[in-house]
Simulated assay, not measured.
Amino acid sequence: MTVGKKPDAARLDKIVADARRAADQRELGYRERSLKMYPWVCRPGTKPEIGRGRAGNA
């Protein structure tokens, strides 16, 4: 980064606006809408591991 050079405000505003628009688009997806309605169903770390057999038989 160049010392003493100020960031271009218009460029930063465009980057922020693009990021917000992308986040809004992602929220329209099926999975994101489902997570808002049923957050306990599909959270990371809550899915049982596959192929380990019954609980306690690791």
Rank of each mutant, 00 (worst) to 15 (best):
K6W: 00
D13R: 13
I15N: 08
A55S: 12
P44A: 07
D13T: 05
R31Y: 15
R26C: 03
R21F: 09
M37W: 10
Y38G: 00
S34F: 15
G29T: 12
G51V: 13
P7K: 02
D8V: 06
D13Q: 13
W40N: 01
Y30W: 14
N57G: 06
K5C: 04
G45F: 08
D8Y: 02
K14L: 10
V41F: 05
Y30V: 07
D8H: 02
G29N: 13
M1P: 00
Q25I: 10
T46L: 09
V3E: 03
D8W: 04
P44V: 02
D13F: 12
R54M: 09
D8N: 08
E32D: 09
R20S: 03
P39F: 06
Q25M: 10
P7S: 00
D18Q: 11
Q25C: 04
A9N: 06
L35G: 02
E49G: 03
W40R: 02
A10M: 12
C42H: 09
C42V: 03
D13E: 11
A58L: 11
Y38L: 11
E32K: 13
I50S: 03
I50R: 02
R21T: 13
V3I: 06
I15D: 11
R33M: 15
A23V: 10
M37G: 04
W40V: 02
A9F: 10
K6D: 00
R52S: 08
R31E: 15
K14T: 01
A19P: 08
N57I: 07
P7E: 00
R52N: 12
C42L: 05
R11G: 04
R31G: 10
L12H: 09
D24P: 05
P39S: 02
A23W: 07
G45M: 00
E32R: 15
T46H: 03
D13W: 09
P39E: 06
R54S: 10
V16T: 14
K14I: 03
D8E: 03
R33W: 09
K5Q: 07
R11C: 01
T46F: 03
L28R: 12
P7H: 00
G53D: 05
P48Q: 07
I15Y: 09
R11P: 00
L28Q: 15
D13N: 13
P7T: 00
T2E: 13
G29E: 07
G4H: 01
G53N: 10
G56A: 08
A9C: 02
K14A: 15
A19M: 14
V41S: 05
A19S: 11
W40L: 04
D8F: 05
K5I: 01
E32L: 13
Y38F: 12
A17I: 11
G56F: 07
E49K: 04
D13I: 06
G29Q: 11
R31A: 09
P7F: 00
A55R: 14
G53I: 14
R31W: 15
L35N: 13
K5G: 03
G4V: 01
R20G: 05
A9I: 03
A55I: 14
A22R: 03
A58I: 12
R43C: 01
G45T: 01
G51F: 14
E27P: 01
I15T: 11
G45D: 02
Y30A: 10
A22I: 06
R54C: 06
G29D: 11
C42R: 04
D18P: 06
D13A: 14
V16H: 12
K5D: 04
Q25Y: 11
L12S: 08
A19E: 15
V3A: 07
N57T: 14
A10R: 14
D18M: 08
T46R: 14
